[in-house]
């Protein structure tokens, strides 16, 4: 597998970031085609264990995006998520998995432009990682 075309798994919350991604589409804002999205109701649904699983299975990067603080459709999902992501991020970086592989963002439903910028940023960031695959990737 060549990191020329990294595959990036993205979890987007339905109400803000997924809507922001749709808006980038309706506005025809172009970005690299490396991101693959899994839609979830809320960033609070994203179990940080998904990150470990994805990096182990073959994702070159993981990008999780939810509503800005205060905007959560479910009032507080993103706040809980923030703590969880923090822990997992610290663990992952601590064991030596490149920080570039993991990105979190808040993108609102009206931030089509930010979504585009984030997609570009995330892709560039993952491409920066020199190793071909994440150390956690297990080839078979």
């Amino acid at each position: 597998m060549d990191t020329k075309d990294p595959k990036i798994l993205s979890f987007l919350c339905n109400w803000c970031s997924y809507a922001g991604a749709d808006l980038a589409g309706t506005s025809r804002l172009q970005y690299p085609p490396n991101v693959r999205v899994i839609r979830v109701p809320c960033s609070g649904r994203v179990n940080p264990q998904f990150i470990v699983k994805a990096l182990r299975d073959g994702a070159d990067g993981v990008w999780i995006s939810g509503c800005h603080p205060g905007d959560c459709h479910y009032n507080s999902g993103n706040y809980f998520a923030r703590r969880r992501f923090y822990i997992m991020k610290e663990l992952i970086e601590f064991v030596g998995i490149e920080p570039e592989r993991l990105t979190f963002s808040w993108v609102s439903a009206s931030e089509g432009k930010k979504f585009q910028e984030m997609a570009i940023y995330v892709t560039e960031r993952v491409k920066k990682v020199k190793d071909k695959k994440s150390p956690l990737y297990k080839e078979i």
Partner: peptide, 16 residues
């Protein structure tokens, strides 16, 4: 428990 609560001002600078 840590993951059972939150504060508005929690650390969030790692999120873009």
């Amino acid at each position: 428990v840590f993951l059972g609560e939150y504060h508005y001002e929690d650390k969030g600078d790692f999120i873009k």
